[in-house]
Design a binder for these strands. Structure first.
Lengths: 245, 245
DNA sequence: CTTTCATTGTGTCAATTGTTCACAAAGGAA
DNA sequence: TTCCTTTGTGAACAATTGACACAATGAAAG
């Protein structure tokens, strides 16, 4: 818990994406005593891989361990130090801040995005910041440091990846319907898709298995439930299939 | 030139890709006195951005400044330290090596790939290693540290990116023919493409301008020369066009 | 100078995919 | 029972893909 345990000059920042009815959201942490927000993040222990460091951040914030995680950027301008913001964070935590505090130095940040099913999400108390919030990525609050930029870059990376791989299913429950799948694509890509064509295309990928069940408790015709089939997916990958939308 | 000028624990590695007649090649540096090769790389000065650090590596190795550069990965296992290999490199350079040498420590490597036109390439003497070679990426020699893995990951990233953006033109001269463009795609994606369809598809992208000239000095019918048109490209991007092959 | 041959630009045609629209079945609400 | 919305599916037409054909071009061979 201090300078000597971590790799100096290196930090981890995570953009945790979650889907709600009509928006893609990121999990932000409020810096107590301010109106500013930060991304969940941390540092890399000296005997820990950077991936493990990111997983620890996720575990401590979401209570989840089996998470889709993607490294999308490492940012490192020479001016990337934020003593003012670090001071605010220290103050909000009752930690002593000094001019020479190690966290004031220039930092290189290794950035990951995570895709989680918000229904499985269990907020667990972090030691650093208390208040958390799912924030619509198109309506960000004031954020400290360059975290707004990191978040936007993470979103760009997600959009690009989603165009090539069916990673969006990690935002949905295990069982999902075609309309739910379509809505997920529409929200992330920020454009409407044609329903009939979307379903045919998705089913042509041959990576989902249709279940006997249908989604219950919906007002109109009950849609079928589907499940992602890892074996089918690997088969299609071997065949050189593409999954671009 | 030493520990105190660089960010500790952080290195830069560059996979410099260049195209020859029938293969995609990476620029490797030979560690004198051994049969082992390494990627061009370096460290990050304390007041230098990581991108600038990568550009410096490229400048010092290729003599080129205006280079397509893409950050594709940051690697950082906790075991990622290579004292034995560092010792070999030190020996080959006549630098004193000690057990506690700063370069023996655990390093996080920020990895870039660069795409250059080999015809513009001018080898410039690095201080570290003398002998260089363009090596077919499908036939790699023995490499130190985990550089072979970095190279493979860089190639995977290049293939993925090439499927979405016309970045491959950075490997070609300013003026190129459709058969040359096709060959570039075939070599990188490692599969044959149908000639007629390829041309129609590329021209449908509407990002190239056909010149009046044709490629001279070729044995058969002389193909037209084309040039990438940045304005056209930006227009298509604005229209939301995709460039996947 | 003619013939041969590989390459390039372009065209044809069938199969597949994209786009738009339609319609019946399902289920809640009036 | 009627009305309304959503879902699954299919029809019709447009565009793209994939496989091949063919004439024009230019070097090499005779």
């Amino acid at each position: 818990m201090g300078e000597e345990n971590y790799l100096p000059h290196v930090s981890i920042d995570c953009v945790i994406f979650g889907l709600t009815d009509n928006s893609l959201n990121a999990l932000l942490l409020k810096v107590t005593g301010t109106e500013s927000w930060v991304l969940p993040g941390g540092y890399v222990e000296k005997d820990e891989s950077i991936e493990d460091a990111a997983l620890h951040v996720l575990k401590s914030r979401t209570g989840l361990t089996d998470i889709y995680l993607k490294q999308f950027m490492t940012t490192g301008n020479s001016e990337r130090s934020f003593p003012d913001d670090v001071r605010r964070i220290c103050e909000s935590l009752g930690i002593e801040w000094t001019e020479g505090h190690w966290a004031n130095k220039r930092f290189i940040s290794i950035c990951y995005y995570a895709l989680i099913d918000v229904n499985k999400f269990k907020p667990t108390g972090g030691e650093l910041e208390q208040e958390y919030q799912w924030v619509d990525i198109h309506n960000l609050p004031q954020m400290l440091m360059d975290h707004d930029n990191i978040l936007r870059k993470g979103y760009e990376a997600l959009k690009e990846n989603l165009g090539n791989h069916p990673i969006g299913i990690n935002l949905l429950p295990d069982k999902f319907t075609m309309p739910e799948l379509q809505k997920m694509y529409e929200i992330i890509l920020d454009k409407t898709l044609e329903r009939s064509h979307f379903q045919k295309k998705m089913l042509r990928f041959d990576i989902f298995r249709r279940l006997e069940e249908r989604r219950e408790g919906v007002p109109h015709k009950r849609p079928f439930l589907y499940r992602f089939d890892e074996n089918k997916y690997q088969n299609e990958l071997k065949k050189g299939a593409r999954f671009d939308v």
